[in-house]
Design a binder for these strands. Structure first.
Lengths: 245, 245
DNA sequence: CAGTGGTCTAGACCACTCC
DNA sequence: GAGTGGTCTAGACCACTGT
């Protein structure tokens, strides 16, 4: 599965070393990492080599550097691109609105064939399932139906999702390295329409997301949004560094 | 408007120099650019400095480098992220299907207040308008309604869009440096439903896109897709370089 | 073979921040 | 002032492609 047998470049080895410490939690967000000088001593390489590794980590959003101060593990990234979508709670709060999450289900079930396929399991295998409704100022804006791979997140069912919604829990505790989004327009069924306090004839945005960690599926989630209350947006600047907003 | 009065870093100057040649067409896609050695001689800098400039241009997708061969201006970029969406024609052809575009309108009109606002013009100003239907194997998959800023693309109306659809024409001839996407779910009106050969009760994905070049609006376009025949997707790998598919 | 890019070194100067 | 990162240099070795 691993590419690059012919030995990694030195700067890449440093990147790997640091990335690993961040991914496995040894260096949590905000943690100060060794200075270039220290890394040079530790690895026995030239400063330019260490510098390149760190520069590329900055550019990947993994660390933040401040001249004259030091280098730090980046705060849990709102991520680069479509991933802001991941956190509807903070998005709502940034608008200055009230956010609330109603849990509708948290359970262990047998995987149906399609769920099994999505999560790379066998039909009938045990999977975790949760459903919840996200509300903005007490108006439903998202109905979230989620399946979680129990081999990756065995403690999922024991979480107190009233304190932290499922998506935030997973983002914080199961860093993923691969993500897939599909956006569809659909009409809600009767039950969904009722939960979302909308008509069955009004269209919805359906955002389906899958995430992986080291090529193992973590979660498969479908987020249903009343289109009248929610749309997806992104903005790019191609010059300089890509900046979002 | 320009940042960085305190003189750009040397490597950044090289990046700028090359970027400009590419943007203004002096170096078209596929053009071979000077070797590192030549650039070192030309700019009087160390090779590492030139190398960093070129490396960052690769990473931005502006150029392609092949060890032992040379450096070349990248082929007209399918762009990085959501921008693949820009070219529905190539997307359809990649699936091995037949692509066709029916032009419904190409005209000069007076800007309505909303169009004027989107394009940063005044209501009543002259704008170009085009509408077309994109078909996959003779089935309509996208209804495109576009407004174009005549100050940026004065020759828009004279184009032969039967040879090259509007989106491709603009991508090729008016490189933009900023882009905004908004995705909505809507129901089509009667006319749209008829054009798209669908029911008015079936939901559509509505992709609205605006592009800018040097902070000037270029085009505002709304693409209506029958959801049953089209969905948007993206896939990320957070490790290594972001790769899409 | 000469040319290209990919990487690496061991120094260096600077602007900045914190104490 | 000591420490940090941002940048730059003038060399170097290597693997690779072309002819």
């Amino acid at each position: 599965m691993k590419r690059d047998l012919p030995t990694l470049a030195l700067y890449a080895q440093v990147k790997d070393h640091i990335s690993r410490k961040i991914q496995d939690g040894t260096w949590p967000p905000g943690h100060r990492l060794p200075s270039e000088h220290e890394l040079v001593a530790q690895f026995g390489m030239a400063r330019m080599t260490v510098n390149r590794a760190l520069r590329e980590l900055v550019e990947q959003g993994r660390i933040v550097r401040v001249a004259g101060v030091g280098s730090f593990v980046a705060e849990n990234k709102p991520q680069s691109t479509l991933l802001q979508i991941a956190n509807i709670a903070s998005e709502i709060r940034q608008r200055g609105h009230d956010y609330r999450c109603e849990m509708l289900a948290v359970e262990r079930i047998a995987a149906s064939p399609d769920v099994a396929a999505w999560l790379d399991l066998r039909a009938g295998d045990s999977v975790f399932h949760s459903a919840c409704l996200h509300l903005e100022n007490d108006t439903p804006v998202q109905l979230e139906e989620r399946y979680v791979n129990p081999q990756v997140v065995p403690e999922y069912l024991e979480q107190d999702f009233s304190a932290m919604p499922p998506s935030e829990y997973l983002v914080r505790n199961v860093p993923f390295d691969q993500i897939e989004h599909v956006v569809d327009a659909v009409l809600p069924n009767a039950e969904q329409a009722e939960r979302l306090a909308m008509e069955v004839t009004d269209p919805c945005l359906l955002l389906t997301r899958r995430t992986w960690t080291r090529n193992t599926p973590v979660t498969w989630v479908r987020c249903l949004h009343p289109a009248s209350r929610y749309s997806l947006g992104s903005r790019f600047k191609a010059d300089g560094n890509p900046s979002f907003g």
